[in-house]
């Protein structure tokens, strides 16, 4: 593994830990898109079905996969749990979470039918998850562009998520040049799309929150 890949994985892991820490320590969940977090849980469950075959790439790979499934599922459970403990915040969160995710699910399913490595259940599920991950941030982006309520989404979470996507690009360039010109085209193009969406996410965050903050301060 090259340094970009390791740092990319670690920043992804960090972003999830930051989000969990935020949800647990602050009462503000309004800025979080429940739909985006649910889509991420679906992404990891459908991508890592290969865990069940026990043809594991490495211990590192298997442990990271288990971490991503468990931690994203935990985020969904935490958000869902706030329905009882913090009803007002929960309703606020859902009220602004109005992006239609059916389109993302259908689009990703179609992309996986057109672009896959093999026409098998595991490979179709893998491709579906890669395409879904590339667009799963859209409900969050949409929510942010409409309301700009981002108290619990800290700069650190977005920075870590953006860093993870950005680092995967030099990782692919590194791998392409060192590993016999091999490149996973599906992961590469879906990854590029995702990185573009993240740069938009950061731009909106910057204009709405960082610059907007100056106006709101008493």
């Amino acid at each position: 593994m090259n340094p970009f890949r390791i740092l990319g994985d670690l920043s992804h892991l960090t972003s999830i830990l930051i989000l969990i820490h935020n949800i647990k320590t602050t009462r503000y969940i309004e800025g979080i898109s429940f739909k985006t977090q649910t889509l991420y849980a679906l992404v990891f469950i459908t991508r890592y079905l290969d865990l069940l075959t026990f043809h594991w790439v490495s211990l590192y790979n298997a442990l990271m996969k288990i971490f991503f499934i468990v931690s994203t599922a935990y985020i969904v459970v935490l958000l869902q749990g706030s329905k009882r403990t913090n009803t007002i915040a929960y309703n606020e969160m859902l009220m602004h979470d109005t992006f239609k995710i059916q389109h993302l699910l259908i689009g990703s399913a179609l992309m996986s039918v057109f672009f896959h490595h093999k026409f098998t259940f595991l490979e179709l599920a893998w491709s579906f998850s890669v395409w879904l991950e590339s667009v799963a941030i859209l409900p969050q982006l949409y929510m942010l562009s409409k309301g700009g309520k981002t108290r619990s989404l800290t700069v650190h979470y977005i920075f870590a998520m953006g860093l993870y996507r950005a680092l995967y690009i030099p990782n692919w360039i590194w791998r392409y040049s060192t590993e016999d010109k091999k490149l996973d085209k599906i992961a590469f193009f879906a990854g590029l799309l995702q990185t573009l969406l993240y740069s938009d996410f950061f731009y909106i965050y910057y204009t709405k929150v960082i610059r907007g903050k100056g106006f709101k301060l008493p």
């Binding site: 790439v57 490979e123 992961a187």
Partner: peptide
């Protein structure tokens, strides 16, 4: 038989 595809990235 074809080899299984190894998705080594996360």
């Amino acid at each position: 038989s074809e080899e299984d595809i190894l998705h080594d990235e996360l």
